[in-house]
Amino acid sequence: MSDDAPVSDDLPDSPIHTTGTDHITIWGSNAEDTIEFYRDLLGMPLVLRQPNLDDPSQTHLFFDTGDGRILTFFVSDDRQSDARPQRSGVGAVHHIALRVAPDRFQEMMEALDEAGKGYNVFDRGIFHSVYTRDNNGLVVEITTDKFDVPDDRRAEVLATTQRIREEAGADYAGEEHMAEALEELGLEAEAHDLPDAESGVGGVE
């Protein structure tokens, strides 16, 4: 059963090994609304704009999410934005998650307030998350880590946290499990000072 699949940062015995995320592409509405949300509010540089190579009647927008990984949108001026929640189902995208620096987390929430964007904030145990929606109702999670985990050790830290969580009999990974994992791996990382938030299940209001 899949519940018995081991959690590990070791490369699996598979015929293909990916080397990272290149880009994710989303069906967007129009360029103006998409740029307003992702560039002007979330601060992602618009780094490339060209025709959709499979359908030149549409435009393909490329945004840098902050670390060189790219989020792209197919847009067309004849499509209106629709902020209603998107349909869910097998194969659908539940949400996308982006990161902000811990010292900008409070400022990010204030910017969402000023932009009139509804959101919920949660303490997810090993990170804090804000959930909002873009101009087309797609759930966008904006998260920040409780600890300054090096990107090249992230998988190792998460897999070790998972093992410690299971040994403790906890349902979810908590701050204490990650702190123990960091200590075990010899990584010095102080916890960031983040605002109080409820834990639990939920998303956008």
Rank of each mutant, 00 (worst) to 15 (best):
S14T: 14
S14P: 00
I16L: 12
H17R: 09
H17E: 07
T18Q: 07
T18I: 13
T18G: 08
T19L: 09
G20K: 10
G20M: 14
G20D: 09
T21R: 06
T21K: 05
H23K: 11
H23F: 09
H23M: 08
I24T: 15
I24M: 15
T25G: 09
I26D: 02
I26A: 00
W27L: 05
G28T: 07
S29I: 04
S29L: 01
N30R: 04
N30K: 10
N30L: 09
A31W: 12
A31G: 04
E32H: 05
D33F: 08
T34G: 05
T34K: 04
I35H: 06
F37I: 02
Y38G: 13
R39M: 00
R39F: 01
D40K: 13
D40I: 06
L41A: 03
L41K: 00
G43D: 03
M44N: 01
P45L: 01
P45M: 00
P45T: 01
P45H: 01
L46W: 03
L46D: 00
L46I: 02
V47D: 02
R49F: 01
N52E: 11
D54W: 14
D55C: 12
D55I: 12
S57R: 14
Q58A: 09
Q58G: 06
T59W: 13
H60I: 03
L61T: 13
T65Y: 06
G66V: 14
G68E: 04
R69W: 04
R69M: 04
R69C: 04
I70F: 00
I70G: 01
I70Y: 04
I70T: 15
I70S: 01
L71E: 04
T72Y: 10
